[in-house]
Nucleic acid binder design. Structure first.
Lengths: 336, 336
DNA sequence: CTGAAAGCGCTTACAG
DNA sequence: CTGAAAGCGCTTACAG
């Protein structure tokens, strides 16, 4: 007991000395690299298992030029829709990272400040990065590319030579809209968020594609963009109520939330007087008396895949440039 | 242009050679440690600023036995109440960490598995840890203590010799309950969550303390614990409706959410027929037609303080064992 | 199959 | 005030 506190942390030399072998041999036994006799390997392994030797990460890093860390870049968000998305995505990333003995460093970014990003890259604290929100003409993605950091984006970037993982937002919205049309909807308004974000561009694309595919005209008057505040959503709803629309497609649950409340205040019944659907499901949509038709994506899986692809890419495996994950269309009362 | 890709990353020796000084001098110029002439320091700084030298983090780590990383241990949670809490707390931690040139490694834990924790500790990947949820007789906290890792907990641990940062949950609840009593409430039920979590123990403590202070009897029949599912909350509400209660105090917004819905289904009007309050505010509470009385805590600040105290403790400054942050009592329609 | 040695890129007592 | 040298704890060509 008394000398436990004085006890120095074990190094590879300590185990080498104890076992009467060289440090190189211990190193090889642990890493599995280089030729090593099966008998010695086992002997060393047994010793390590018993005494619990853990290599010093910094020393390994330095010798191998490899950190076993990846960074996940998260935007600073505040809403009940965004927070769970990024948090859940992080779960997926962490899960795969852990399984591969990688740790994740979290970077929260608010604006266009690349200072922290640069520091982490230049200090070589990570082997790669995951960018979890993409914008059109993405500044961070370009920055990472310039600095030749291995990275994958969660969300499309619109650039050809970047590794991207995303839900098939465009395809999902196209299908949802097509299905709704087939159920008799005549005129569907679209309420969209910040059009700088790629996810919103993709969703609107899907809405447009469904119109084309079913040979309907696209009416710009009932496509609302950049509804980033409650007030803007309310105004849009007021406006479209004058336009003979029978369904409102909401870009996400933040917008959907405001739409449902606004309609309730206006005394308009869902789905009798107005149908409503959302391009993104989260638990927020469980908050209403009427259940909401929406698209459901597996966000944990999105994180997992992004991480797996990044790790593969770091290890020089061939990885797909573009990975699009599946979706579910959940038809509920709100479009009955 | 052509040889930019071949260009090796700059080391301290490169700048030393360029400047005709030794590596030690460059090191001293950067770190500010050791004596160094002001003129040389400036000359070196100027060169570095211009050419952008960044020290290799692994080499620094190894030489100084210091990683400039801290870990934040997050429980795996799923609800719209818990996720934003931990995510927001992480923002605060990250903010202070960044400001001090520390990076944060995120560890997500679901059960009692200490494998990852152990690996990160033993590999010396971090200088300290923040544990963001505490349980009575906390397993992880004990584990960290045994391993002599500097750490602080967000939430109390009930142990004397651990550094703890928390909102004053007990004090806040005591005040809230006292205020409500003073407004004429006669009999207040308490609906609590998982009683293994310290936060829930503290809140109930506050409820009890307010009764004592106002010389009221505590009625165990209207104190419900461990309401961890929707169904349990509903049953509790059904039960307490038979018990002549005029106010329901909810331990958090998850419970409050279910209570409000249940009361609506039962046709009971808030606040006319039943008053309702929550010991924790989050945006979830904005979802109702009637606004809810609650306690508001600054979660970002909680993260910031926890991180600052951890960093201070790592740097051998004297830090308080127990830090309790302030709260706001928000009185709204639900208790009018 | 195994070991001695050099190296990864820093820091820091020790001399001067 | 500054430099040469040793050291942090690993890995890995190079010999044997």
């Amino acid at each position: 007991m008394a000398n436990e506190n004085i006890e120095k942390v074990m190094t590879i030399h300590d185990v080498a000395r104890e076992l009467g072998v060289s440090a190189s041999t211990v190193s090889r036994a642990i890493s599995g690299k280089g030729r090593i006799g099966e008998a010695t390997r086992k002997r060393i392994q047994a010793y390590i298992d018993e005494h619990g030797f853990y290599p010093n990460a910094a020393a390994q890093s330095l010798a191998q030029a490899k950190t076993n860390n990846i960074a996940i870049i998260l935007p600073e968000v505040k809403t009940l829709v965004d927070m769970p998305f990024f948090h859940t995505c992080m779960y997926g990333v962490e899960e795969v990272a852990q399984a591969n003995d990688y740790d994740i460093i979290v970077i929260i970014t608010n604006g266009k400040d690349t200072k922290n990003l640069e520091r982490i890259i230049m200090n070589r604290k990570v082997d790669g990065m995951i960018l979890t929100r993409t914008y059109e003409n993405d500044f961070f993605a370009k920055f990472l590319k310039e600095h030749q950091v291995p990275f994958v984006t969660v969300g499309k970037t619109g650039e050809a030579d970047m590794i991207q993982v995303d839900h098939d937002n465009a395809g999902a919205c196209r299908e949802l809209v097509t299905v709704l049309f087939s159920k008799g909807i005549k005129k569907m308004a679209y309420l969209g968020g910040n059009m700088e974000q790629m996810v919103n561009i993709s969703r609107l694309e899907g809405y447009v594609a469904a119109h084309k595919r079913t040979k309907r005209e696209i009416n710009e008057d009932i496509i609302y963009k950049n509804l980033t505040t409650k007030v803007l959503v309310e105004k849009a709803v007021e406006d479209l109520l004058l336009r003979d629309v029978d369904c409102i497609l909401c870009e996400d649950d933040f917008i959907c939330d405001e739409v449902v409340r606004k309609l309730a205040r206006e005394g308009i019944k869902i789905p009798e007087q107005m149908k409503v659907a959302s391009c993104h499901y989260s638990r927020v949509l469980d908050n209403y008396p009427v259940t909401i038709t929406s698209l459901k994506f597996d966000i944990v899986e999105l994180g997992r895949r992004a991480c797996q692809i990044l790790l593969d890419s770091i290890n020089n495996k061939i990885v797909p440039d573009m990975t699009l994950l599946d979706y579910e269309i959940i038809l509920k009362e709100s479009t009955k």
